[in-house]
Amino acid sequence: RKWEEIAERLREEFNINPEEAREAVEKAGGNEEEARRIVKKRL
């Protein structure tokens, strides 16, 4: 699934746990840019 690939990239890029990465992607509706913004806000 594409969402899992996005979550994996976010996890590696921001050094967050898989659960946090998945939550961000879900919140963003699968949009990678939006997920990235969500993760950055949390850091």
Rank of each mutant, 00 (worst) to 15 (best):
N15G: 12
E12K: 15
N17G: 13
E13H: 05
G29N: 14
E5D: 10
R42E: 09
A24S: 05
N17F: 08
E13Q: 07
R1P: 11
E32R: 04
A24E: 02
R37I: 09
I16S: 02
E23Y: 11
A28S: 09
F14W: 04
E4N: 09
R9Q: 06
R1K: 13
E12V: 15
N15Q: 12
E20N: 05
N15K: 12
E4A: 14
N31Y: 06
E32D: 03
F14Y: 09
E26N: 11
E4R: 14
I38V: 07
R11K: 08
K27V: 10
E20P: 03
E26V: 13
E33S: 09
R1I: 11
A7S: 06
I38F: 05
E19Y: 10
E8D: 11
N17Q: 11
K2L: 15
E19H: 09
E33A: 13
A24P: 00
W3Y: 09
V25C: 04
K27F: 12
E4W: 13
K2S: 13
R22Q: 10
E4H: 10
A28E: 01
L10W: 01
I38N: 05
A35M: 01
V25R: 00
R11Q: 12
N17I: 06
K27L: 15
L10I: 10
N15Y: 06
R22A: 10
A28F: 02
I16E: 01
E20V: 10
E26A: 13
K40D: 08
E20I: 12
K40I: 15
R36Q: 04
N15L: 08
E4G: 09
E13I: 07
E23D: 14
E8R: 15
R9W: 04
K41Q: 13
E12I: 15
R42K: 14
K2Y: 11
V39K: 01
E8F: 11
E26S: 11
E23F: 10
P18T: 11
G29A: 13
R9M: 08
E13K: 04
W3A: 06
R9P: 01
I16C: 04
E32C: 04
R11L: 12
K2I: 14
P18M: 14
G29L: 12
A21K: 00
E20W: 15
I16M: 06
I38M: 09
A21F: 02
I6L: 11
I6W: 02
F14S: 02
K27Q: 15
K41V: 09
E13F: 06
K27Y: 10
V25L: 10
E12W: 15
E33P: 06
E12L: 15
R11N: 04
E32P: 07
R1M: 12
I38R: 06
N31F: 06
L43M: 09
K27H: 10
A24Y: 04
R1N: 12
P18R: 13
G30N: 03
V39A: 05
R9C: 05
V25G: 01
V25T: 05
A28K: 01
R9A: 08
A28W: 01
N15M: 09
R36D: 00
R9H: 06
E34N: 07
I16R: 01
W3C: 05
I38Q: 07
E4I: 08
E26L: 13
L10M: 05
P18F: 13
R9N: 05
E12Y: 15
R22W: 15
G30A: 03
E34A: 09
R37D: 09
E19W: 14
G30K: 02
E8C: 13
R37Y: 04
I38T: 06
E20S: 06
E26P: 00
L43R: 11
E19T: 10
I6K: 03
N17A: 14
E34V: 10
E34I: 12
W3N: 06
R36T: 04
E26W: 11
F14N: 02
I6S: 03
I38W: 07
V39D: 00
E5P: 04
G29W: 09
V25N: 01
E19G: 08
V25I: 10
A24N: 02
K41N: 10
R11W: 11
E12P: 02
R36H: 04
E23N: 11
A35I: 02
R37H: 08
K27P: 00
L10F: 02
A35V: 02
R1L: 12
N15H: 13
I38S: 06
E13N: 03
R42D: 08
A24I: 14
L10D: 00
N17W: 07
R22C: 06
K40H: 15
I6C: 04
E33N: 10
